[in-house]
Amino acid sequence: MARIVVVGSINMDLVTTVKRRPEPGETVSGAGFALVPGGKGANQAIAARRAGAEVGFIGAVGDDVFADELRHVLVDAGVGVSRLRRLPGPSGVAAIVVDGGGENSIIVVGGANSRLTVLDRGDLEAIAEADVLLCQLEIPQQTVLNAARHARAHGTAVLLNPSPVQELSDQLWAAIDIAVVNEGEAAQLGTALDAVPNVITTLGSDGAVYRGPDGITLPHPGVRVEVVDTTGAGDTFTGALAAHWDEGPEIALAWACTAGALATTKLGASTSIPTRNAIERLLSR
């Protein structure tokens, strides 16, 4: 069982479903509304756990009405929360609009995630003992850099999902072993990704492609399913990839593509992440 430590965000997602997303200045009627725990860090942690890894989470919630529920969703998934702290102020939230085709628009407000600025001794020990450190960019970049440097110094592989896309320091690029990006992110980051030895680019329903340190690419086809909501599919892909990275890129890609596809068949982010059994059943077909 791979040991994964996630340093990342946890949000409450406010999900509204509509037939079509509104144009600027337009009001449309919604078809439904739900509160769904999410955040890229939490989603990826749950996905890695459900794909079979042992997972610990380093992050922050606020002291508002969402905090306990956000903690409970990690506990219920079997993710370790001994390094999850509660900070004064609001928890992170994301306003998500999902249209009739399953496509989404998302606005993220960082809340407590933006105040995750210090990694203490216990955090650093957990990172050093892990097989893979998994990070995203919904927390301060300096925190990600500090975690990545410590991981690199202790032989822990560093996997970064550089989303939402932003300019990264040369120091952070130099500390990354594996990057997972979608096509839009790959286009925005451009040649900066050349600094990373292992890059996986997701292609939506067309699967994903891996580029290794030797420059050789390995494609994996998409898994055809009936799409309901694409929210969280990329996070599910990334978590499953991290859980099986030690088995080699070909096997990890198969797990990731299958898990990501299954995540699109249900509404929501953390609520749509498939179990290991569900992934294995679809893989066996």
Rank of each mutant, 00 (worst) to 15 (best):
V132A: 07
E125Q: 08
G190Q: 02
G52V: 10
L160E: 10
L116K: 01
E23D: 15
V180C: 06
A60W: 08
N198R: 03
P24E: 12
P249N: 11
G52R: 02
A126K: 01
G215V: 15
N277I: 13
G52D: 09
A147F: 08
G111E: 15
I46D: 06
A259P: 03
T201G: 00
A195Q: 08
L218A: 08
A269N: 06
K40E: 03
P162S: 01
R211I: 05
S270L: 06
G32W: 09
V7I: 14
P219A: 08
V5T: 14
Q166N: 01
A126S: 14
P213R: 09
A256R: 00
A53K: 08
G8E: 11
A51W: 04
G89V: 05
G78M: 08
A130G: 05
S105C: 09
I176T: 10
V7C: 09
K19W: 08
V228L: 14
R86H: 02
L168W: 03
N11W: 06
K40Y: 01
R3P: 05
L119Q: 00
T117E: 12
Q141S: 13
E23K: 14
S284L: 10
Q166E: 13
G207V: 08
F237R: 02
L116H: 03
L133F: 12
R71Y: 05
R83D: 07
A42D: 05
E26M: 08
V180T: 09
E247Y: 05
A94H: 09
A240E: 04
R21D: 01
I96W: 12
T230W: 12
D120K: 04
A147S: 12
R121C: 01
V79Y: 04
R115E: 11
K266P: 00
L133H: 07
V196C: 06
D177S: 09
E129D: 14
A174W: 09
L137N: 03
G122E: 14
Q44M: 11
A174N: 11
N198P: 00
G39L: 02
A130H: 11
L282D: 12
L133N: 10
R85N: 07
D246N: 00
S29Y: 14
V93F: 13
A192V: 03
V97Q: 14
L70E: 10
P162R: 04
W245V: 07
V144M: 11
G38M: 07
G232N: 03
W173E: 00
A157E: 11
L133K: 04
A195V: 04
A187K: 10
I4G: 09
P221V: 07
R115Q: 10
Q188V: 00
L134V: 12
A192F: 04
G80V: 11
